[in-house]
């Protein structure tokens, strides 16, 4: 088999991206690559620009400078609705499920870009044929089954527990069989058992698709990611394997909540405990 054009190369490439909102610099000089099959974690304190970075990649925000390319083609002029067809899927902070549609219908919408490549009728926007419908339904059910939530297919999303809703949202992103999956805080609001299950699911995706995720939970990120990128004030301050990042004193000190003893001592002097004053 001949190697495909993109194989071996990075799939997503972000070069020197800058975003400003009025006077606020959300991102500046941010560069990163995501290789096929690689799981990359983006961490950083609140306001570091993690979600802005995602929004730039999926076209919600236009960068003021820099270049984003996907398989060698610039994404600068690509409208958001075309990303799914190009193999890029994204989940949102929270769940972002359609409240008035059943779980199955939610996932069927995610399955459409893939189906559209296969069936001419959906391309023309004609009412679906039985065959199209069966294929979409089967794909959606398979995605739900992969995440062990097939039994809630006919329920309304709002009636489900939050961790189940998160799984449905992930199923909706996976059903398109993306080459790049962007996960915006996939573990937020999950308990430790659910987080463990999620880590297993993501680990299984490895090799099938590239994953870029934004997350606060350090254990989760170091457990599941091949590579970690640390953002602060809109800049990349460190990048490396989870072990390297965990060993980087600046990262430890400023972004992971661990403090070096000097810093801790300093703070104790400056900030008396509340209530004592």
């Amino acid at each position: 088999m001949l190697p495909r054009e993109e194989s071996g190369e990075s799939t997503l490439r972000v070069v020197d991206v800058a975003v400003r909102f009025g006077g606020l610099t959300a991102l500046s000089g941010v560069s990163l690559d995501v290789a096929p099959g690689e799981i990359v974690g983006v961490i950083g304190p609140n306001g570091a620009g993690k979600t802005t970075l995602f929004n730039v990649v999926c076209g919600f925000v236009r960068p003021d400078a820099g270049e984003i390319s996907w398989r060698g083609h610039s994404l600068a002029r690509v409208r958001t609705h075309r990303l799914a067809g190009l193999g890029i899927a994204r989940t949102l902070q929270g769940v972002g499920l359609f409240p008035g549609l059943s779980v199955l219908e939610n996932v069927m919408i995610g399955a459409e870009p893939r189906a559209r490549a296969r069936f001419a009728t959906t391309l023309l926007g004609l009412p679906r044929s039985d065959r199209d419908e069966r294929a979409l339904r089967a794909a959606a059910l398979a995605a739900l089954g992969r995440l062990d939530v097939a039994e809630v297919a006919s329920r309304a999303p709002g009636t489900l527990p939050y961790p189940v809703q998160k799984r449905v949202a992930l199923a909706r992103a996976l059903v398109a069989e993306p080459a790049l999956l962007l996960l915006d805080e996939p573990a937020s609001g999950l308990g430790s058992a659910d987080m463990k299950g999620l880590a297993e699911v993501i680990a299984e995706l490895k090799g099938d698709m590239a994953v870029m995720l934004v997350e606060h939970h350090m254990d989760f990120v170091t457990g599941v990611c091949d590579r970690v990128v640390v953002l602060d004030f809109g800049r990349v301050i460190a990048t490396g394997s989870p072990a390297e990042i965990q060993a980087d004193p600046r990262v430890l000190e400023a972004y992971l909540g661990f403090e070096t003893s000097e810093r801790a001592a300093e703070r104790e002097i400056r900030e008396p405990e509340p209530g004592r004053a």
Binding site: T80, A89, F98, P99, G100, A176
Partner: peptide, 10 residues
């Protein structure tokens, strides 16, 4: 229901 999410889904 949600134009932005719909766009993301193609």
């Amino acid at each position: 229901f949600d134009p932005e999410v719909s766009r993301l889904l193609g």
